[in-house]
Design a protein around this nucleic acid. Structure first.
Lengths: 126, 126
DNA sequence: TGGATAGTTTTAGAACCATGGAAATGAACG
DNA sequence: CGTTCATTTCCATGGTTCTAAAACTATCCA
């Protein structure tokens, strides 16, 4: 995987709704979920969800197939494998043991940021 | 690592300049690089780089220390570890072998799937 | 054929992000 | 103490992303 693809994949996951969708699809495995089911379970309006699903598909992180009237989305394991491969090779110098160990990640926030609010909810004016 | 933190970390890496900076710092290891060196080597104006370094630091992916007049940035291994941990746990169901194998990632783009998605109906051949 | 269901595309506005020059900061050196 | 250098902050600008209603396509059933 080259850098541009990695940026696309990371961008796809770097959004609350899309990350939630992706996690849901990973849990679902090969079966996946219909777009409507995802929309309902995550309380995302269909049009908005469709936009996000397109992003995930474009990034190669999800696959879609048709079943009757529904479109079933499922994770693309190749996509996440390649992204993980990129991160391990290019960001961990090919030594997974340097990167894979989530010890202490629950204790405290990795990022020490007292003031700034994390992105997620955007502020509405008024 | 919880989802919000993961989104912040992924957002930080989901940008070309920042990903380039991060990769450079990973290669540099503990030694790191001064901000000025990074700016020069990656041809990023100092002000712009400073903005990106702040994002990376905010996400817990880089650390900074002072040496003489320079500020040396280096990777925060805890940050990338926690992100990887999150991805493996939440996106790979805790089974690294499902995710870690970059076979075939160089052959073709992941996002151009042989299995055509149903959205491409509007393409004309001529 | 006609109506209901399932999803997508279009569209528009608001919020957010990236960029880079100029000025400010602040530590190190003489 | 003042100069110098490395870096950051300030700020305006232009571009991108997110959201969601409305319109549209495709499928199924009677």
């Amino acid at each position: 995987m080259e850098m541009n693809e990695a940026v696309v994949a990371l961008s796809a996951l770097a959004q609350e709704s899309r990350l939630a969708v992706f996690r849901m699809l990973v849990k679902a495995g090969e079966d996946g979920f219909a777009a409507g089911e995802i929309a309902e379970k995550l309380s995302i309006p269909p049009a908005t969800l469709s936009f996000h699903l397109k992003e995930l598909a474009h990034a190669g992180l999800v696959l879609s197939r048709k079943e009757g009237r529904s479109i079933i989305y499922s994770m693309n394991s190749k996509g996440i494998k390649c992204l993980m491969g990129f991160l391990i090779e290019d960001c961990c110098q090919g030594r997974p043991e340097l990167c894979i160990s989530a010890d202490g990640c629950d204790d405290a926030k990795v990022c020490e940021q007292p003031n700034k609010s994390p992105k997620g909810k955007r502020k509405k004016s008024g």
